[in-house]
């Protein structure tokens, strides 16, 4: 376990070294993140300022947006690990991973963490800025935090493993991954927060695993709203079921893998 953790850190560090070789890529990552944030903040500022109903508070929505977008690279909810797994399977890198003393499920995590380190750091800073704007986590949010964090971590991990596994069945499964991400973005409140959706739709979505994968944590960190205990516990059930299913699916998929050169 310790040896595997050391290997994970070493791999992450090795991948992060590319920023040393191409320092301009750091600027590129920052530019990319700043542009996205600037465009979305402008959009929501305009919505808040010029909407005919006038009940949208720009501060509220911008802090939510910063937090929820900041969480994405931290929990890989844009399915970066799945992409990496699909790539590894497609180009045969998985061959090399299988003979290394590291789990083939963990390996893409190390690679991706290292290669998108700047985005992760940027994500952290966005979460902090978002919390600062909204007021931050409150004492009444704290009891929810361990379970909500567990749900977020487990569900996103399970999604990444499951979608990455499709790489065993299709030569190029990125289209499938993209479709999933589009659906997830709406259902977890990333495009429009669940608190701005009609109550019936928001409630219906709470029965899916998507809000527990990002929305619950976002509103907790904002400190202005709380998820209901019922939906948090339902999220935990989803987390366990999805994780179990994803690991089984991965093992089944791995049996289909035909390595070349082994």
């Amino acid at each position: 376990m310790l040896a595997e953790a050391k290997l994970f850190i070493a791999l992450t560090y090795y991948q992060a070294l590319r920023y040393k070789a191409f320092p301009l890529e750091i600027a590129a990552s920052i530019f990319s993140n700043v542009v996205t944030v600037a465009l979305f903040i402008t959009f929501w500022l305009l919505v808040g300022k010029y909407s005919s109903n006038g009940d949208i508070v720009p501060k509220d929505i911008i802090s939510f947006y910063l937090i929820t977008t900041g969480l994405m690279p931290i929990f890989y909810s844009a399915m970066g690990i799945a992409s990496q797994s699909i790539k590894n399977i497609k180009d045969g890198t998985l061959n090399q991973v299988l003979i290394k003393p590291i789990s083939p499920i963990i390996h893409p995590w190390a690679v991706r963490t290292g290669s998108s380190l700047v985005s992760m750091i940027f994500g952290f800073s966005m979460v902090i800025v978002g919390m600062f704007i909204a007021g931050g986590i409150s004492s009444r949010s704290l009891p929810y935090l361990p379970l909500v964090l567990f749900n977020t971590l487990m569900i996103n991990t399970a999604f990444n493993i499951a979608i990455g596994t499709f790489g065993f069945y299709f030569v190029q499964a990125n289209g499938l991954k993209d479709s999933f991400v589009h659906v997830a973005r709406l259902c977890r409140g990333e495009l429009i927060p669940l608190f701005l959706m009609p109550v019936s739709i928001a409630t219906a979505l709470q029965f899916t695993p998507f809000p527990a994968s990002q929305y619950h944590l976002s509103i907790l960190l904002q400190g202005t709203r709380l998820p209901s205990w019922g939906f948090v516990i339902l999220g935990s059930v989803w987390a366990i079921v999805l994780m179990y299913g994803a690991l089984r699916f991965w093992r089944h998929g791995l049996k289909k893998y035909e390595a070349i050169g082994l």
Partner: peptide, 8 residues
């Protein structure tokens, strides 16, 4: 969803 909320 957005326009149901904001009108215009």
């Amino acid at each position: 969803l957005l326009f149901r909320r904001v009108g215009s």
